[in-house]
């Protein structure tokens, strides 16, 4: 794939580029959003990896760039130093397809990172494990999730991460059929809209967990 990497930290960029090229991707790099925008005009990348903190102000330029890339229908995987629900919600917007939000250090789990990148590039949704777990725990404390069983809570966290039914089945080493049954049960108990598409249900779950 052709991957656009927007990252201003040279050493991390080197590692990222090495990892991506090592996995057979073609890499284009930019140090800041304006440069990335120019590259976008030359040839459309298949997917972009964008650091949230970018010059000039190092606040949330990455998220704004992600919104721009969305308008060009480029899938984006955003990297952040922190697991912040607001970042994820603002990134996913109304349509979570082709969006990903991972902590920066996940790149070091190279194989998993490449898998996540592939999922985002294919229009899937990826949310960092830590963020999903944190939000689910907090919602559980608020008693929002009291009707759910332990197993259902576990599965909800994985749904929030953006895993497909198959992905969840693999992670928990259970059958896909069991996963489907659990997921339907969770959505019914929480009165969430029935959204068959995997990526839709991430957004629903996340928003629900966040706001109860």
């Amino acid at each position: 794939m052709r991957v656009l990497v927007v990252e201003d930290h040279a050493f991390f960029l080197l590692g990222l580029v090495t990892a991506l090229t090592g996995h057979g991707h073609e890499v284009v790099t930019a140090g800041e959003p304006y440069q990335a925008e120019k590259l976008l005009g030359e040839r459309r990348p298949d997917v972009a990896v964008v650091d949230i903190k970018l010059p000039p102000t190092h606040s949330d330029e990455g998220l704004r760039l992600a919104a721009l890339l969305r308008s060009h229908e480029v899938p984006v995987l955003v990297l952040s130093q922190y697991a912040v629900p607001e970042y994820a919600i603002s990134l996913l917007g109304a349509d979570p397809r082709g969006r990903g939000y991972l902590l920066k250090e996940r790149v070091a789990g190279v194989a998993q990172f490449m898998g996540a990148l592939d999922r985002v590039a294919a229009g899937g949704t990826v949310i960092d494990t830590e963020l999903a777990a944190m939000v689910t725990r907090a919602a559980a404390r608020r008693a929002v999730l009291s009707p759910l069983s332990e197993r259902e809570l576990e599965i909800l966290a994985l749904v929030t991460e953006g895993l497909t039914d198959r992905g969840i089945a693999e992670r928990l080493v259970i059958s896909v059929h069991t996963v489907v049954t659990h997921v339907q049960s969770v959505f019914r108990k929480l009165d969430l809209p029935k959204t068959p598409a995997d990526n839709r249900r991430v957004l629903a779950a996340l928003a629900y967990l966040r706001n109860g």
């Binding site: 050493f11 090495t18 090592g22 903190k53 130093q81 920066k104 250090e105 790149v107 070091a108």
Partner: peptide, 24 residues
Amino acid sequence: ERDLHDGAQQRLVGLGLALRLLAE
């Protein structure tokens, strides 16, 4: 906070990635 975030933390994360690549 910004210095820690943009400096030390970034370096450590970069280092972690480099180590992984080396391990591969």
